[in-house]
Design a protein around this nucleic acid. Structure first.
Length: 713
RNA sequence: GCACGCUUAGCUCAGUUGGUUAGAGCAUCUCGUUUACACCGAGAGGGCCGGGAGUUCGAGUCUCUCAGCGUGCACCA
């Protein structure tokens, strides 16, 4: 197309983006092995694998944009660059999405075998995965698709199991009866990080329990309470001795209660006396363990009372609570009710239902030794946090880390390679699938039905994707240059990658950590489907173009803080794309007779030399910004330069020199200056707005030019 | 309870190691425009940088404190 014809129309992204991406992909330059020229330095990013269970949202668009900017910048700096993409099976997350789908179809996972469910979710995930990959391409991501990894690929699963066994042999793994966070709806346990605490006002009941008054918000758990705990120093109860037995009248008749003196009893709290329910409270369980007490399950996995509750058996919690209070009141044991009791209750982060602590045999990782090495790495800046506030949060969490429950009672995930004894419940790690009898009691064994917490495998992602330990990728690119991901998964993912990376490979998985905040709507509200305020990247890109979307997500978006995304802002960068289009039209149509290769730069006027020097300063400044992850500043600077310096000043003042009445020297001086600045500006802007810059670059008069994406700065 | 943030123009936000007259986008107002571009240009108004104290030759930036807003972790008889 003739230059004037092409540029006469406003820039229309939809005419060019698909073809340009295809040209990039066909060039092979996404793959570090096929990059042109000598490249001594390496630069690498492992892409956080998006969940393969739905469409990309604005947060995905943000991380793809930030990472692509860094990748393209370093590639144009002449580095050997790997951006390793992936897709996440996202265990529990995906299973929840799929269960909703089942529900709509009038089905339930509890009517299916684990194998049937697994196969159906696998098919569902694979379909979504390819859909999602198309959306990442649409955003312009220059990642190496030839190395794409799925979190259930054989190599990943094999390494994850190996690590599990290694933890066992290093004595960092145990299977034990512990209080776990159990969701009665989803029928699985969660790690401590996955639970959400909600403030709530509830009734708080005081009951007469023998000579004591005890308080509780959960009367329905009290059937098995046969221990009375008080602080050993509490003078009010000095007449009672540890282990002393007393007869008390309780919900379903008289029981024998035992006095326990333990420092967990807080004299300041209520009467200073409490009864304990070890099966349904982590703290109570610890007390029970300290004193070797017995305990019993009161509430079943579905949230219903068990046979110990006698007449209340089978009732759901809330129904039982009211009736038990009624009965205790009738027996004259209800002392008072406080209905202004504020407390926070643990909820399932998915269904916002109350979690029920249950005692379960689960696999736990002993985290302290792993955390200590991570702390040292962060402290010494071997892992450098770009955002200082997240370094503080990381140190705080690692310093008070708790053991990690990695067992999940869901089908969609990596099966835990272990055998469980059906007689004594003893668990044995079994990578080779060779164990047939219990090592403790010689009883029969079955495969552990549970799967790993997704974050256990994700935590090993950097080195598994790079083919640890023998792969060339691992040798060339580990530790990777920077981990860029959402600040909301700092503890879930980033810190676990650091801990497991150091543990398995002996080295940190990445040198820098760059965390971005949430993308919210223009009013600062969290985007959600139910609110209808979701900005779908694909829809925005259709209206304004991908380049405009990328700029809108980038300019002024400080690392680590949330951003409010106003579509109007993206519209502003659509205007900018068109401005650049017209700048190019003006320059190209005015240099058609000019041969830049044969122009003698010695002849350049001092004024033009000064302009080029000024440009060089800006360019150095922008490069420095990008080296230091100041993407929000770099993008604004190049925007400002192109519009308000190149267009408003340099082009405007060049018009006189390009006029017919001007001398040949003056005209050539202006032509050289404008063409040079256009070429340079396209390079600088390319990482941010890759499509339009590549398209304009096609018309740049140069002998042996390659794609702009591999043109050096 | 422990910890981490935020507060700058009407709105959304930048402001890197303290250093000229505190910036941008959007919005508002005025003027201009047969042209590279109305997806335009020139210009204007608008800010005791949350309050107070301190360090300094100099503070939006550092320290302390108060207030408001937000977030994470933990606990909950």
């Amino acid at each position: 197309m003739a230059i004037n014809e092409k540029y006469t129309k406003p820039y229309d992204p939809s005419l060019y983006e698909k073809d340009i991406y295809a040209a990039w992909e066909a060039s092979g330059y996404f793959n570090p092995d096929h990059l042109p020229g000598e490249r001594s330095e390496n630069f690498s990013i492992i892409m956080p694998p998006p969940n393969a269970n739905g469409s990309l949202h604005a947060g995905h668009a943000l991380f793809v944009t930030i990472q692509d900017i860094l990748i393209r910048f370093h590639r144009m700096q002449g580095k050997k660059v790997l951006w390793q993409p992936g897709a996440d099976h996202a265990g529990f997350e995906t299973q929840v999405v799929y269960e909703k789908k089942l529900q709509k179809e009038g089905r339930s996972r509890f009517d299916m075998t684990r194998e049937e469910l697994y196969d159906e979710i696998l098919a569902f995930t694979m379909e979504n995965k390819s859909f999602m990959e198309g959306q990442i391409r649409d955003l312009g991501a220059s990642c190496d698709w030839s190395r794409q990894t799925f979190t259930l690929d054989d190599k990943v699963v094999a390494q994850v199991k190996k690590t599990f066994a290694q933890l066992q042999s290093d004595d960092l793994l145990y299977r034990g009866l512990r209080s776990v966070n159990w969701c009665p709806k989803h029928q699985t346990a969660f790690s401590n990080l996955e639970i959400q605490h909600n403030e709530r006002k509830d009734k708080f009941y005081y009951f007469q329990y023998g000579p004591f008054v005890i308080g509780t918000a959960r009367p329905e758990t009290k059937f098995g309470d046969k221990y009375v705990v008080m602080h050993p120093e509490d003078a009010r109860y000095s007449e009672y001795t540890h282990g002393q037995e007393i007869e008390v009248e309780w919900i379903n008749g008289p029981i024998t209660a035992t006095i326990i003196k333990d420092e967990a009893g807080d004299p300041e709290m209520g009467s200073g006396v409490m009864t304990i329910t070890p099966w349904h409270s982590g703290i109570d369980f610890e007390i029970a363990q300290r004193h070797d007490l017995t305990y019993e399950q009161i509430i079943d996995e579905r949230g219903k009372l068990m046979s110990i509750a006698q007449e209340f058996e089978g009732m759901p919690i809330m129904e039982a609570r009211a009736k038990i209070v009624e009965k205790l009141d009738a027996k004259g044991l209800l002392v008072k009710v406080d209905d202004q009791y504020e407390h926070s209750v643990p909820m399932c982060y998915k269904c916002t239902r109350e979690l029920e602590p249950q005692l379960k045999q689960q696999w736990f990782i002993t985290m302290k030794p792993l955390a200590e090495k991570a702390l040292a790495a962060i402290d010494s800046d071997c892992v450098h946090f770009v955002t200082d506030q997240h370094k503080k949060i990381a140190l705080h969490w690692l310093n008070s880390i708790e053991d990690w429950n990695i067992s999940r009672q869901i089908a969609w995930g990596i099966p835990i390679p272990a055998k469980i004894c059906t007689d004594c419940d003893h668990g044995m790690v079994d990578l080779a699938d060779a164990i047939t009898t219990c090592e403790k009691c010689s009883g029969p064994v079955v495969q552990d039905p549970d799967t790993f917490d997704t974050w256990f495998s994700s935590g090993q992602w950097p080195f598994t994707t790079l083919n640890f330990p023998e792969g060339s990728e691992y040798k060339d690119f580990y530790p990777t240059s920077v981990m860029e991901t959402g600040a909301d998964i700092l503890m879930f993912w980033v810190l676990r990658m650091i801990m497991l990376g150091i543990y398995v490979t002996g080295d940190v998985p990445f040198k820098d950590v760059y965390l971005h905040g949430l993308v919210r709507d223009k009013k600062g509200q969290k985007m959600s489907k139910s609110k209808g305020n979701v900005t779908a990247p694909s829809e925005v890109a259709d209206v304004y173009g991908t380049d405009a979307l990328r700029m809108g997500l980038t300019v002024g978006n400080t690392p680590g803080t949330n951003m409010n995304l106003d579509p109007q802002k993206i519209g502003a960068y659509k205007k900018f794309a068109n401005k650049l289009w017209n700048i190019s039209r003006f320059i190209y149509t005015n240099v058609e007779t000019f041969d830049i290769a044969s122009y003698d730069t010695e002849a350049l006027s001092p004024a033009s030399q000064k302009i080029l020097q000024d440009f060089h300063v800006i360019k150095t400044d922008i490069a420095d910004d990008l080296q230091h992850y100041r993407i929000h500043l770099a993008s604004e600077k190049i925007y400002h330069y192109i519009w308000h310096t190149l267009a408003d000043e340099i082009i405007e003042s060049s018009k006189a020199s390009l006029d017919d009445s001007a001398t040949t020297d003056a005209r050539q001086d202006a032509q050289y200056l404008l063409l040079t600045l256009l070429g340079e500006s396209l390079r600088l802007l390319h990482p941010f707005m890759p499509f339009i810059t590549e398209e304009i670059w096609k018309d740049f008069p140069s002998e042996d030019k390659d794609l702009l994406m591999v043109t050096r700065w």
